[in-house]
Design a protein around this nucleic acid. Structure first.
Lengths: 342, 342
DNA sequence: TATCAACACGAAAACGGTTTCGTTGATTTG
DNA sequence: CAAATCAACGAAACCGTTTTCGTGTTGATA
């Protein structure tokens, strides 16, 4: 009962014409007589003929697939970026092959090498923690040397020359901290992650600069550094709030923010009156926390769309082999004011 | 400076042997002399030769890709399932092409048809809201008729015969509501979504049965039906809590639970003493809400892994064209007890 | 009537592999 | 010494398309 996929060959045999004639007839070529074209097209429609994508890919040396490698998929920001990529890609006839590096250098390398052997026309990726820690980007460089376009987003590196999409991390952090200071806060703390995440570094820079520009001195004691996105570090956070004095906290992600807000509340602090909080990433956690969290919207959808747009532009211009020029697009984040700040 | 990918043809020309010889030499065929094999293998390693995936796919009629179509990607449950699929698939040499149907019937159909033309070896999917509402499954049936394996998960339908992975929705809902009753609650409300989501229907059934089995009568007034995952329905929820009397609420997702918990708290109710809450989906929202939400863990990772396992098994046994037999695997959910219940 | 377009179609190469089936030249066998 | 065997390799088909380049038939032209 299996209706196996029909091919040009089947149509040709059935209609007693050649494969070339069928192919041309389906493309409405002028070469073919009206009669034959109608016959072939009718037959093709009847049997629901669709050309085989793999054969087309081989012939055209274009797969219409783009590879996306992200560190984590159960993560609000990355999923929004992914959604943006998928949306734009799909609208332009591309499919998305998704790989999760799981923050591991090795997985990132393996996935890239696998996909680089013809499966995709280009890559969009965000560096894994392992890769940033190791500072080894040879897999990226090799891919580029083979002429495969690559777009990095969010977690990027200066070590490789390619298109990039990043957030204005330092600026938005500056703005966020400034808004805390403007509201009267004097002792603004920072909760951040290990420094090999360059985005955290940029956010910390914005934080420091905002303090200095507004007559406050940077106090290393008011900086708490935690393992990435991990809340097993509860005791550290507890200790931080018990031993330090502060009236505002800027966090590099929403989990840190919401969790530490809870800790502070547990210690009897009023939010935002005693301590105000600002997070990063505008996910459901921020929207539904008590109080609702003031946070930085990263506009992942837009980031994804732009990354996809840049990549597809490169892919489709690959034939005109001019020396490629690379751009870095900066997405402007937005501070979403809610109830965890004054 | 472009190091274009090297092919068998290049190696053959360079070494002045035939393409067949190169191919065999790389596979360590006994047919080829030791000398030639060493020469070829050394050359291939030097130039980092990797066979072209597309060519292999065309030849083998196997792409080693599996297509995953989910309604939404910015969604905790679906991302965990996706992670499970990706993990298992990757470990078994498969890549995952991800498509988001965006809850739309049309997009689901388009994506399926696109991928069904040779791009993938099989599908894993969860039905979009549109498809469930329309009750049209011809795209699934056609794919099956073409001999492409399909595994449905979570949002499934009886209308199509294929492998399925589902949660024991009714049972776990029964258990959840029972636990509320056991703790002394007498008026348990239900907050659910439009009924064309069969999972919501099953959960509602478990809810009703638990009430009846424990001497409580089902009161339709204590059921609030909301649009899917949408919290624009805030006034409805407010009205619900203002006008009805209850001492516990069972919700079909975590957003409804956390949001309505906030509404109840705003009205002066103590959680869980005055009103207890149980949600569905064990996402970050549940973990970080105040109080932390008692909820149903759906074990998406496991669901994804099992779905991938079933699919790959079918794909790899496709050759032995016996009449396929279909299974429905039931994943046992777990009730995670936290602080929103007594 | 010989010439020449125009027309409608087919053969074959190409994309990059795998694999079956020769085809050599050298060695072993009777 | 002729015949059979064997080791080592190449030719060609195949997967499903697209596309270039013939080629045979017609009708018009000189």
């Amino acid at each position: 009962m299996l209706k196996r996929k029909i091919t040009l060959k089947h149509i040709a045999k059935e209609l007693e014409v050649s494969i070339s004639t069928v192919s041309k007839a389906l493309k409405n070529s002028e070469e073919i007589s009206k009669d034959t074209k109608e016959k072939v097209q009718a037959f093709a429609k009847l049997y629901n003929y669709r050309p085989n994508n793999i054969a087309l890919s081989l012939k055209n040396k274009r797969t219409k697939n783009i590879g996306v490698i992200i560190p984590d998929i159960v993560h609000h920001f990355f999923t929004t970026v992914f959604r943006g990529i998928e949306k734009y890609a799909n609208a332009h006839g591309y499919n998305v092959i998704a790989c999760v590096s799981d923050e591991s250098f090795d997985k990132e390398v393996i996935n890239m090498e696998l996909l680089a052997n013809g499966s995709i026309d280009g890559f969009i990726m965000s560096l894994s923690a392992g890769t940033q820690e190791k500072n080894d980007f040879n897999h990226l460089k090799e891919v580029l040397e083979q002429g495969i376009p690559l777009v990095l987003f969010d977690r990027v590196t200066d070590e490789v020359e390619c298109d990039k999409v990043v957030l204005n991390d330092a600026e938005i952090a500056y703005e966020a901290v400034k808004s805390l200071i403007d509201s009267g806060k004097k002792k603004v703390a920072l909760i951040t992650t290990e420094s090999y995440f360059n985005v955290s570094t940029y956010r910390a820079e914005g934080y420091k600069k905002a303090l200095q520009d507004h007559g406050l001195t940077f106090d290393p004691n008011l900086v708490l550094t935690l393992p990435y996105d991990d809340v097993a570090s509860e005791p550290l956070i507890n200790e931080f709030f018990e031993t330090k004095e502060m009236d505002a906290v800027f966090c590099v992600n929403e989990i840190f923010a919401v969790f530490s807000m809870g800790v502070a509340q547990g210690l009897g602090y009023q939010v935002p009156e005693d301590i105000a909080f600002i997070g990063f990433t505008n996910g459901i956690l921020s929207r539904f926390s008590k109080p609702a969290l003031t946070t930085v919207a990263q506009h992942g959808d837009r980031m994804g769309e732009i990354a996809a747009k840049m990549l597809i532009a490169k892919v489709e211009n690959e034939n005109l082999e001019e020396e490629p020029t690379y751009r870095t697009e900066v997405i402007a984040a937005t501070l979403i004011k809610r109830d965890s700040t004054l």
